[in-house]
Nucleic acid binder design. Structure first.
Lengths: 220, 220
DNA sequence: AGCATAAATAATAA
DNA sequence: TTATTATTTATGCT
């Protein structure tokens, strides 16, 4: 199976979120002493903080339920290793109109009206459950479901221009351990500091080492 | 009590992390087909991917156990709403020498030697358990334990005037990487917070990079 | 309704 | 490790 998920029966430390887990980011700041303007478009995050009003009067919406879901949604999303952007894009692809990163963000923060939240909740719930289902079958399946690149590598930090990197890489391919003389020449050609080029090769070798984690013979 | 933790008995959707949760970020890219140079200082992330070697031969270290812990550590940390920086700072305060954000990052990514990981694991385990304990008693207690501000609010988003942006851009054109001294002067001239100006340059460099990246065909 | 981008967080070159 | 870049999240705005 997935090399990232070996055959050990269960996690050694089963992660069970505490009965009353904290909000991931204390975004719904409880210390906010601003008066709740329960006017035309009060947000869930505001309403739910009112102790006795857990059900939106007009709509018959269980705000408490939504709040719990929003909280759990974030944790489950993170457990799957997904970003708000990924969720938004995937939803846009599968569910129809458009779900921007902003929309996911605002849902998680409950910075939306109860009506919007109520509408969005089942969509997210269904999608997340499906995503978790695919994840069971391996990370690759999840990423396929999400629609992102299966293994989009994080771009390496660099202060070099793309052109320079291309040249450096071509040199590196030929010889990953250039001599001092060669380094000097490359630096001159690219018009970079010699020391910078030397360090680039060091880090490049380092990266190679660190990224060559997977045994090529190990078919998942 | 805490307005964030109302009296509802339990979470409606108890978040139980799946038996085999995925790594949060797919950092250990499985597609890498580079040969493993099992040299002097193989990292846990490297070693653990070798199917039959779950125990480091020399050290008697259970790599699989460490990997599971690292994975769960991240999820549990996020569930508590803590950042790597917070963990590092708190550990530095309570446990002694120094645990930087980078150190936590590297542990979670297992970009460290088994020996280091083995040494760090119990420290993190103990600390995290304690943090979870305090969290049970309310978010405030957790934040107190962590030592950070109870509810550090996100800075309000700054709106630059068009004039200010014009000036900033002209500076950026001349030098996209101003020194601390220069930043201070620019901030003073424009009457903006120094930090705000610094971040503006960071983001501006980012934007430039992202837009100039479009025409790169590095399709392998 | 969502884009553009400021701010915050994580990863990594030095 | 430490500074800085890369990435993600959050929000001002229209």
């Amino acid at each position: 199976s997935n090399p990232l998920s070996p055959a050990t029966a269960a996690t050694q430390l089963p992660v069970v979120i505490a009965p009353q887990p904290s909000v991931l980011k204390s975004t719904t700041s409880p210390s906010s002493s601003l008066p709740i303007t329960c006017g035309d478009a009060a947000k869930v995050g505001q309403l739910v903080s009112k102790p006795h009003q857990t059900v939106s009067s007009e709509e018959g919406i269980n705000l408490e339920e939504i709040r719990e879901f929003a909280k759990n949604f974030k944790i489950r999303r993170l457990s799957l290793g997904l970003t708000q952007t990924q969720v938004g894009q995937a939803l846009t692809a599968t569910e129809g109109p458009a779900y921007s990163q902003s929309a996911i963000c605002r849902f998680e923060k409950l910075d939306i009206t109860p009506k919007s939240a109520q509408k969005l909740k089942p969509v997210l719930e269904k999608w997340l459950a499906e995503a978790e289902h695919w994840n069971q079958k391996g990370q690759q399946n999840l990423m396929e479901f999400v629609g992102g690149e299966p293994s989009k590598k994080r771009k390496r930090r660099t202060s070099f221009t793309p052109q320079a990197i291309e040249v450096l890489n071509s040199y590196f391919e030929k010889n990953s351990l250039p001599t001092g003389q060669e380094i000097t020449e490359i630096a001159k050609e690219l018009n970079y500091d010699r020391e910078v080029v030397r360090v680039w090769f060091c880090n490049r070798r380092q990266t190679l080492k660190n990224t060559s984690k997977i045994n090529i013979f190990q078919i998942q």
